[in-house]
Design a binder for these strands. Structure first.
Lengths: 342, 342
DNA sequence: CTGAAAGCGCTTACAG
DNA sequence: CTGAAAGCGCTTACAG
């Protein structure tokens, strides 16, 4: 054991593919192919390899695999913010779909900042992920180039486009915004305010839907929009609702761009003694936890984030297998949930 | 270019450490050392290497690094559930501390299931993380062994122990549970109910604190505990509150083990026309988003999850540098936040 | 303080 | 359908 070769060993005692191959009486290449389910390997050999794996307790080394194949089993998933529970649900669905297929989610939170997204992208791309899941289409030109140059399969979540070669799963934020506005119109409301925070692209698409619906009804009034770049929260919703009521006294409805704001607005209405929906109807967006518990229960749009996460992950799985998903753009249904606040 | 050697090339065109070394006129080993800030490299050489890195746009390959050093720059972080925004805050603080130091968080969600934690641990350990951040101490024996056998630095979050060799940052869930109960006692309440969901270890520690405080005051009554193994949510809080009021009519206060339950309870009280705090005082735990907006604003315990995340990540950073953190167990302060619900 | 050699544990590309 | 050789891009261990 004092041979130079032995002294140079750095072996960690880890069970390697070589050990498995020897145990199964095949070559390492065959063992590798058998493990990865590459077809063209005899069924008997596959069985022998799997048995050897079980007996030895072999665990493949992702680092070695990534180095040799220049592709890991990690999928980078970029979302704006976890305090918006919408994205927690999305991640949950992504994880449930990807993990059983052998992929880990490498979660990145961009805080709605394109520059931060670009930085995360650089960092994660170095890890040779097997694929990319990103939120929406709004990013820096450099980010776009990074994604393109990586040549990695990439699926865009939450929004859709028909641009060729772009894979995406989402729903129409604009139409959903219009739908909830039309619901308020159908209740006889005419002075419908729009209150938004964060002002990210999807929020502004909802704003577009709101505007379109009101213009169509001949009720649009730009002064009824209250937009704040601050982070969305119940407290901000309450504050904006108060501000709205103090400055636009004739409104008869409010569409909040997210349920947390709407919940805050509803609580503020209580505090101010403003009757909902008698005096003002209130609607939210996303159908988050607690909205059905509010007083009165909140009318909102139930968005298919679980479905988006699952379908998006499935599409990515196809791309990673070099299959071509058809269609490349999937638009999922949302649902207006009418409760007592409108 | 038709030499056998050339035909076998798989080069991805990637800029490698070799390129950097050549550009800087040093050996790859020296370049490697200079990049990792290993001391014992001449300052002039370090500068030349860094200049070459900049010029070539070199990005180190984490897979190759992990394979060669059997250590990656990823830190596995295991939390129970992201729908409890407590853990979103924790992760945020962890990421803010680890990322600038060159580490990525590999987030794993256990869903409060020790078996799922074990599975995630196996999967993540294969990735040779540089360190481990786990929630609490309650896990399978196999998980414990996996962590031990990995030899990786590991910091436990949210709870503390004085057991030697165990690194942890948290606060006393038991004392915090006792403190909020004592606050209710100090308000003259004597029939104080305890309502809990999920029933994870930390929830049960809060229950212990509740019991201890009430026993000390001679007010403990086991029938005032309402424990549900279901997932915590506003809806469940509302339901449990109704159940409590229907079956324990003489209570004068409720301590909910988490703010989401308490918020649901407060909303249920409104619906039922039960005055808070006149008829029943209500207290929560964690001080989550919206608790200050409730009607009335919720009395709760503000828990130091940002601080736990940051201090825990810092401690892990020390361990990964092979420093020995002193002390090995850090107990952070919580704060009883008295609002109008009590 | 710097370097030449070997190796980490896989997979790719070629051959048969 | 199976395999021997080379290589992925780093770092470790040894030497000077």
């Amino acid at each position: 054991m004092d041979l130079p070769a032995a002294r140079r060993r750095r072996s960690s005692g880890r069970v390697t593919l070589n050990d498995v191959a020897r145990e199964a009486g095949v070559s390492p290449i065959t063992a590798s192919r058998a493990l990865r389910g590459e077809r063209g390997v005899g069924a008997d050999l596959v069985a022998r390899v799997q048995e050897a794996v079980r007996r030895l307790g072999y665990v493949p080394d992702p680092a070695a695999r990534a180095l040799a194949s220049s592709r890991s089993t990690q999928v980078a998933v970029l979302v704006p913010m976890l305090s918006n529970t919408l994205f927690v649900d999305l991640l949950e669905a992504v994880h449930r779909t990807l993990f059983p297929a052998g992929y880990q989610s490498l979660i990145g939170v961009t805080h709605y900042d394109p520059d931060e997204e670009e930085m995360l992208l650089r960092s994660y791309l170095a890890h040779r992920p097997a694929g990319l899941l990103v939120t929406g289409f709004d990013r820096t030109e450099a980010s776009r180039q990074l994604i393109l140059a990586s040549g990695l399969p990439c699926v865009h979540l939450m929004e859709t486009t028909e641009a060729p070669g772009v894979y995406c799963v989402g729903f129409s934020q604009t139409e959903a915004g219009a739908a909830i506005t039309e619901h308020l119109l159908s209740r006889g409301r005419r002075r419908i305010a729009f209150v938004a925070a964060q002002l990210d692209p999807r929020t502004m698409q909802r704003a577009d839907g709101y505007r379109r619906a009101l213009r169509q009804a001949g009720c649009y009034d730009a002064r009824l929009e209250l937009l704040s770049p601050d982070r969305s929260s119940l407290a901000l919703g309450a504050q904006l609702f108060e501000e709205l009521l103090a400055t636009r006294r004739d409104i008869d409805a409010v569409f909040f761009c997210n349920d947390d704001l709407a919940q805050g607005g509803l609580l503020a209405a209580h505090r101010l003694g403003i009757e909902v929906p008698a005096r003002v109807a209130v609607a939210g967006f996303n159908d988050l936890d607690g909205s059905d518990q509010m007083l009165p229960p909140l009318t909102t749009v139930h968005t298919p984030r679980f479905e988006v996460g699952e379908a998006g992950a499935r599409m990515l799985l196809q791309l990673m297998r070099s299959d071509t998903p058809v269609p490349s753009s999937v638009r999922l249904p949302y649902r207006v949930v009418v409760r007592q606040s409108s």
